[in-house]
Amino acid sequence: MSDFVQIVRDDGIAVITLNHPHTRNAIADESCIQAIVTALAEISADPALRVAVLTGAGPAFCAGGSLQSLGQLAAGEPIANEERYRNGIQRIPRAFQQLDIPMIAAVNGPAIGAGLDLACMCDIRIASTRATFAESFVKLGLVAGDGGAWLLARTLPLARAYEMALTGNAIGAQQALEWGLVSRLAEPETLMDAALTLAGAIAANPGHAVRMTKRLVDASQLNTLDSVLNLCASMQALAHTTEAHRQALRLMTEHMRSKS
């Protein structure tokens, strides 16, 4: 794997760090894209993991694309560039969509352009009070080629999504909290502690239930109630047969008896 991504596993939690602080963790080339896609496939396939945290090394979460890569695209032909997007950065949101465990974004600093979109690909976002967010493509005469419009419209109220996408202006951490882009804030020095505490609360639950619940919440965004109810019935039928469920019932029964 490229040194762009580091993974540390501990007690059911994977911490994924974008590790190019010298580029502000920009998704600069194919090797960066492949590193993210590979990391997501690796943690999804690990049955010992229940949850993951994504953060950035250094002062930035992710600065988006690099000026060098944008310059190469500006010199290319439209048809070739279309294929570069389909076979390049668009592989990242597709990989997130296939991820079986929940992902928490610990946004430690600026999340700009594709960096904001990367945060929106995560299931939960918490942020440092020093974080900033911008869907800045329009300022460069571009659109979000990684699906940012779709992501923003499912993360924010529609008017807020339009405002961010159409102005390209940055918002700070407090505004991001007020708008619902992030669910909580932490001081910079306590951000990872906050993210790991939240991850630990998720990881404390049986792994199969965490993965099934993530899938159901994901499905609810794209499917009808009938479709999700059918999926619920199938998953719940399987969940009832697990030893983790039986053990939880035994513990709850013992607890209730001790209270009586």
Rank of each mutant, 00 (worst) to 15 (best):
V143D: 15
G65A: 15
P93K: 09
A144E: 08
A111L: 02
Q72G: 15
G58L: 03
R154G: 15
G76E: 11
D117Q: 12
G64Q: 03
G168T: 02
E77L: 14
Y85S: 00
G148Y: 13
S66A: 10
I101W: 05
R130E: 15
L118Q: 02
C122V: 10
G172S: 10
M164I: 04
Q68L: 07
G115M: 07
L177F: 09
G168Y: 09
G147V: 12
G180M: 10
A111E: 01
G76W: 10
A173N: 07
D123E: 05
D146K: 04
A75H: 07
T129F: 11
V107D: 02
Q174C: 05
I101Y: 04
R91S: 05
E83S: 03
R86L: 14
A159W: 02
I92F: 10
A106E: 03
A52V: 02
P157S: 12
F137Y: 14
T132K: 12
R50M: 00
F137G: 05
N87V: 00
D100G: 14
I79P: 00
L158P: 06
I89L: 13
V182K: 13
A95N: 00
G172A: 06
Y162W: 12
G65M: 11
A165H: 09
D123N: 10
A144S: 15
I92Y: 09
A144Y: 10
L166A: 15
F96T: 06
L152K: 03
D146P: 00
K139C: 12
A60L: 01
A105I: 07
E163D: 14
G64A: 05
C62W: 03
D100K: 13
R94F: 07
G180W: 13
A52I: 08
I124F: 10
I124T: 11
G145E: 02
G109A: 07
L73Q: 06
Q68F: 09
Q90D: 00
I171H: 14
G65V: 08
A161C: 08
L156A: 01
Q98D: 09
V182S: 11
G147E: 14
V51T: 10
L151E: 02
V138K: 12
E77W: 11
M121Y: 05
L177S: 11
R50T: 10
E83K: 11
C120E: 05
A57D: 11
P78I: 11
A131I: 05
P59C: 06
L140I: 03
L177T: 00
R91V: 00
Q68I: 06
T129R: 15
C120N: 01
I171A: 07
N108F: 08
L142R: 15
G56Q: 12
Q98L: 14
V51E: 07
A176M: 05
A134W: 05
A149H: 12
G113N: 13
